[in-house]
Every structure is written in structure tokens, then in C-alpha cells.
Nucleic acid binder design. Structure first.
Lengths: 116, 116
DNA sequence: AGGTTATCTAACTAGATGGTTATATAATAC
DNA sequence: GTATTATATAACCATCTAGTTAGATAACCT
């Protein structure tokens, strides 16, 4: 099961530890040890989470001496964004007003700063 | 576990049957029987999927004689969209080029049709 | 009331998931 | 070579998940 990659991506994102890992990787590459530091779970548990993220392509691994640094990959996130985008027209009341929909897109484009 | 609602929402979306149910509900309310028709799984399996969707607020149920119609609710989808939006700036190479980013947004705004 | 239709609950099963500890591999440092 | 550090694998366990079949509940229709 979960042969389709969108299901696997959603499943990977359904764990708060894994989402926290992704969030930390937005600041740049991190080794497994650095990634593990803020969490209370064991090393092997982190390794498993990383395997899940890697399998769906949300991270890639490097090699640097005895470290295997992790890097964020966003292609699967883009696929999630594309999927959910299909539903955007349902969360403003005006289903039939195309112009309002486009205006909404435009507005989001402007406010591009990461706070809020 | 999965006390946080974003995790529960992602978990709910990680199943292709449930995503198919949501997709069908974009055309309007449907009874359980109507929803179940295209799937090969049993009635109780559908009931369970609906419970999962209802628990995270992706659907609400009505009452109409012996039918309990399902309606799509998009608030959780909006939360997913908001979460993934935080990563948008990472999926074009030009982190530092604001104009290119805005151009990309603009392009997406234009091609708003649901095919591809 | 008795039958039909729609849906849910109960009890069970196989397999996935997320964690553990103990051990293995691999690269660096002396 | 030996020790140290970083990460991975193995084996195990408890819980969750998605499905099943059988039976219960509830509203409608004569």
C-alpha cells in the first residue's frame, strides 16, 4: 500500500518530529547528530525518521567524513501545494467569481514575507 | 499520539481512498452509499474512512431520512496550504531574487484551470 | 406490524509505524 | 593498531491502521 507518492508524502508529513526536522533544515544542511539534539528520542529513531523523509524525496543525504548531512528537498512539498491548491476555490465563498479568485492569488503573491 | 491537529490532518490525507472521497465531495453533498459506489471496499471500511475525515474536520455529516450525507469542509485544507506555503520560497533556486519569485506566483495565477 | 434500505458497531486480522536497546560499520585521531 | 565519534542495522515490542464479516440500529414503505 501507499504505492502512490502523494500518499507517502502525506504520511511522511503526518509526524510532528519529521515536520520539525524539515523546519530546521530550512536554515541549511545539518548532520544527524545536530538534527537529533533538540529531540528526546534515541538516535535510531532519528535515523528511521530520516529514512522515511529520504524515501519520499523530502531530504537528500551527503557524505562528509563520518557525517552524512541532510538537505531539504522541496519537490514533494510542491506536489502537496499543487494538490491542495485545487481546493483553494472552496474556502472562499465565491465559487463562481473568477476575478475574486485571481485577486486572492495576487494578494498572496505580495505578502511573501515568512512571518504569518 | 497525533494530538496536534496538523498531524492528524496529514494522516487523514495520506490515504488515496480518503483523498478520492474529498475529490468527489467537491461536486456537492453525497450519501455514504453514493460515496461508496466507485470503491471496491466494504461499507464498514467506508464508514471508517468517513470517521477519520470527520474527526479532523474535513467533512461534516447531515441527516436526511435514512441517509447521512457528507459535506466537504475546507478549513483543515487551508491549514495544510498555510503550512506548505512557508516552504514555497525554497522551491525556486533563486532564494535571494524576490522578483523571480513574484514572477513565478504571477504565472501560477494565470494558469488556474484544473487540468494539470 | 413486517420488510427493505441505509448506515453504523463489534470483533477480529494482517501489516505498518514509532519507539526501544544492543550491536555493527565507518571515518577520524592518536 | 586502538580509541573515539557519528551513524546505521537488527531484533524486538506496543500501538495504530485498513480491511474483513456478522449483526445492530434506524428510517422509510406497504
Amino acid at each position: 500500500m501507499t504505492a502512490d507518492c502523494l500518499s507517502a508524502t502525506f504520511a511522511a508529513l503526518a509526524d510532528p518530529t519529521r515536520r520539525a526536522i524539515l523546519a530546521r533544515l530550512t536554515f541549511g544542511e545539518l548532520s544527524v547528530g545536530e538534527l537529533a539534539r533538540p529531540f528526546k528520542i534515541s538516535g535510531p529513531a532519528i535515523t528511521k525518521h530520516l529514512k522515511v523523509l529520504q524515501r519520499v524525496g523530502l531530504i537528500t543525504r551527503g557524505r562528509h567524513a563520518q557525517w552524512r548531512p541532510c538537505r531539504l528537498e522541496t519537490k514533494p512539498l510542491k506536489e502537496v501545494a499543487d494538490w491542495v491548491e485545487e481546493y483553494r476555490r472552496f474556502w472562499d465563498q465565491s465559487f463562481d467569481r473568477l476575478d475574486e479568485y485571481l485577486a486572492e492569488i495576487q494578494k498572496k503573491g505580495k505578502k511573501h514575507d515568512p512571518k504569518k
